[in-house]
């Protein structure tokens, strides 16, 4: 019920943006949008919330150890215990690297920031146990905790039978709007590696509560994944070692999610970190014989050390 309400609130206005953006991408305008040159504004920012801000020209590295679990929506992909969480970032005047994202910020003022970047498609992480994403927890959105038993009429398909899915490299542009303790973000990403040629568009809202040495943030969001993206990872065809009855063509859709993160500073170096997330998957993905859950979720509790 909660998911339906969330979907109704976020999806309707977002639907038109997503469709329009994808249409633009399909006629080659996406690349233009992603790299449109904007003047760099170097206005100072309100960085009263230290955890959201970072000193320029200095690496920020943190490691957290704890207990957590991340499961896998893909059939045959085991739920993975998570013990390690990493935070690594560097920011220059405009260029930056932040947790696997290499980008250039071309708008930076009191209320708005915007950047273009390249990153890898984290969807691939569901397809291999030893991928870093299966060891390191995501504070955003992860995957299901307990696999449910398969229904008798489901096709017998598992991770071991399918052809390998590759990492895709995405190029994207994000814009953030800040007002008080609220933050809105819109991101458009497109595959430039030719792996699946799909797109991903996400809209999120974030509310932060903070006090002396602690911070709690709640983020409802919705991501639209295109047909090509879903079909590449969750579709089944002749390239996979499955019966023809199991062939499936994935289709795009909206995936609303809710994530929460709590950080409590214990001293100058150590902090307590608790996070959890829930993501509802679209039917175009969950109808795949390769997918066994309609949602993904994660939880982590641990202690982080910042170098």
């Amino acid at each position: 019920m909660g998911v339906k309400v969330l979907s109704a609130m976020l999806i309707k206005p977002f639907y038109f943006i997503a469709k329009a953006s994808l249409k633009a991408c399909s006629v080659g305008l996406c690349a233009l949008f992603l790299f449109v040159p904007f003047p760099v504004l170097a206005e100072p920012e309100d960085c009263s919330n230290n955890e959201q801000c970072i000193e320029t020209d200095q690496w920020s590295i943190g490691i957290a150890l704890g207990l957590g679990v991340k499961s896998n929506p893909v059939k045959g992909g085991d739920a993975i215990p998570q013990v390690l969480l990493i935070d690594i970032a560097w920011y220059g005047e405009n260029a930056y690297f932040d947790n696997g994202e290499l980008g250039y910020r071309w708008l930076q003022d009191q209320d708005f920031t915007a950047e273009s970047y390249i990153t890898f498609d984290r969807e691939r992480a569901y397809f291999s146990f030893w991928d870093p994403a299966n060891i390191i927890v995501n504070t955003g959105v992860a995957s299901p905790v307990n696999p449910s038993p398969s229904s008798p009429d489901e096709e017998n398909v598992s991770l071991d039978q399918i052809s390998s899915r590759n990492w895709a490299v995405l190029v994207g542009t994000k814009a953030h709007y800040y007002t008080g303790s609220h933050k809105w973000s819109l991101a458009v990403e497109s595959d430039i590696s030719g792996v699946h040629n799909g797109q991903r568009i996400s809209l999120s809202y974030q509310k932060i509560w903070s006090g002396e040495g602690w911070r709690f943030q709640l983020r409802p969001s919705v991501v639209y994944k295109s047909d090509k993206l879903i079909d590449y990872y969750y579709g089944l065809n002749a390239q996979d070692n499955v019966s023809t009855n199991a062939y499936f063509e994935g289709s795009g859709g909206f995936q609303p999610s809710l994530s929460a993160l709590y950080i409590k500073e214990l001293n100058e170096d150590w902090q307590l970190i608790v996070n959890g997330s829930y993501q509802h998957l679209n039917k175009g993905m969950t109808n795949s014989p390769l997918v066994e859950r309609k949602h993904v979720s994660s939880i982590f509790f641990g202690f982080g050390y910042r170098f």
Binding site: C53, L85, D87, G100, E101, V137
Partner: peptide
């Protein structure tokens, strides 16, 4: 002397 900027991603969000 060091300038602070907002992060593009949330902390602890490598994946």
């Amino acid at each position: 002397s060091k300038k602070k900027v907002r992060r593009a991603r949330d902390p602890w969000s490598l994946f």
